[in-house]
């Protein structure tokens, strides 16, 4: 069996390696290197993070959309009722 020290070395190494990530899943592939010797290595990684920020993504966008076009989009495709769409688009009746 792997001794606890050997397992701990394995465990600690990957724990430290993934410290920089908020959430991460890695797959280690095990392959036979030579007879009686296996080795494992990182095959794939899948992780993400979240952060609170300001919404500046569209700051430089200057293209205008007509309010009528947006209202039709909201009511026809996004299940927003007409009254709420008017509020969102500041359409006065």
């Amino acid at each position: 069996m792997l001794t606890s020290q050997q397992y701990d070395a394995f465990y600690s190494f990957y724990k430290n390696l993934l410290d920089e990530f908020e959430e991460m899943e890695i797959e280690l592939q095990i392959d036979e290197h030579v007879e009686n010797e296996d080795y494992c290595f990182i095959m794939s990684m899948y992780g993400s993070y979240s952060e609170k920020t300001s919404f500046t993504l569209l700051d430089s966008s200057e293209i205008d959309f007509s309010k009528e076009e947006l209202k039709l989009m909201l009511t026809n495709y996004f299940r927003i009722d007409s009254h709420l769409a008017d509020q969102v688009l500041d359409i006065k009746k």
């Binding site: 991460m24 899948y46 992780g47 993400s48 993070y49 609170k52 920020t53 300001s54």
Partner: peptide
């Protein structure tokens, strides 16, 4: 409140 949460995959 018009703040924003960004989520992104590392790779």
């Amino acid at each position: 409140d018009l703040s924003c949460i960004k989520t992104a995959k590392y790779f």
